[in-house]
Design a protein around this nucleic acid. Structure first.
Lengths: 214, 214
DNA sequence: TATTACATATTTGTATACAAAATACAATAC
DNA sequence: GTATTGTATTTTGTATACAAATATGTAATA
């Protein structure tokens, strides 16, 4: 049966979901025939979807042995944070140069529901956080930059819920970034977002070191 | 017939070459059957190679209509330079932190043949240049960073030969970058490589503006 | 002559078949 | 009991067949 728009697309989305919710576990081997049957498709479009996921660092292929759900070790997670510093730093810079009120508004809207609240729902904040960071990239209107920013997928793989640090710490940081963008200060915007990402990175590094020494 | 290591690998390399040397032209539609026959393989491994190229921005897929050799417009080229500023900037920073004499040596070796020469061979220098920039990334030993740096392919698509500016201008800049890395000055290393990339970018922008007004 | 409608040819997307490699497992030797 | 070999099974990589969609060409009409 042939549908109008390419089967590999929905398969890709479905697989991503399955990886996210743990239906497919870290390090697990993907037995193509099995997954294909489960999804009710053949191996051909499944392969297409898997290759797309491989390029997003979610799946790892070992020639002649199979495809595996990628499991990130600590070094790789830190390395990804370094990449994020570079990419998001540049994004903040670009947005500050644009200095568009519309952009600033969109960014502010992400966190509007959390301002001066007694209680912040972690899940809602985690979503807002993820949304903010990918929005930042998207608003640059730089397609190649968007293309290389596929780490948001991995983001909540690092921690259970998707947050490394509590909202009390990060909410203010987010607004420092937005304010620098609003002020049209590229260097400051870049600096603030790097600080923001770097703090989470350092926290992770410390956690890993503690794990090790135990 | 089945070979030991996956047919799509050599196909991928071959296609990249064909794009590079113009055997496959910008915007050209890839008729899978034709290319497959030409390369003596079936569509299946060809598709795998094409999907890999799509993820590197070299091929563009339009569902149900086919795959095309991507043609970059001026905005995209500029956007790629912005990405390079971000990625290579971070790479230089990381290397400056590492402060390894071995790394410094490798980087210096790239341009050693060109120091205080009366005549510099453009092709040789272009190769050294490309090598230097990808080496910079590779030496960080940051796999995700490496993964998102696939613009070197596109590099010489921008100009005919792969150089935007003459060696007289860039040789010194390259050594400014290397010296900052050697000195263990991350901020300076990042600044210098950004300047370096930015100058080429600005030149391209000016050229495009001239083209337009003519 | 330009435009639409239809028939035909191409080409993509998908499923499937099959060969070769990898893996699992049992039987044998040590 | 462990190691080793040989055999059966599973799984990947590739080719191929076929259906559905798109592109092409031709004739009929305005």
């Amino acid at each position: 049966m042939i549908q109008h728009t390419d089967l590999s697309q929905p398969i890709y989305i479905r697989l991503k979901e399955m990886i996210r919710n743990g239906e497919l576990k870290q390090g697990e081997k993907i037995i193509q025939e099995k997954i294909a049957e489960k999804l009710g498709v053949s191996r051909t479009p499944l392969m297409k979807a898997l290759l797309a996921l491989e390029n997003e660092y979610l799946v790892e292929s070992v020639p002649r042995r199979g495809m595996f759900i990628r499991s990130l070790d600590q070094k790789e997670i830190i390395d990804i944070y370094v990449c994020r510093e570079a990419i998001e730093g540049m994004a903040a810079r670009v947005l500050a140069i644009k200095k568009s009120p519309l952009i600033v508004k969109e960014l502010k809207d992400c966190f509007a529901p959390f301002i001066s609240q007694d209680y912040i729902d972690i899940d809602a904040y985690a979503k807002a956080d993820e949304n903010f960071h990918s929005l930042l990239i998207r608003l640059t209107n730089n397609a190649p930059l968007d293309k290389i920013y596929f780490f948001s997928n991995i983001h909540d793989k690092v921690t259970g819920h998707g947050l490394v640090r509590p909202p009390e710490d990060t909410l203010e940081e987010h607004f420092r970034i937005i304010n620098a963008i609003e002020a049209g200060d590229p260097a400051e915007a870049e600096k603030q977002i790097r600080l923001h990402i770097n703090k989470s990175k350092e926290l992770l590094i410390n956690q890993y070191n503690i794990d090790k020494s135990e």
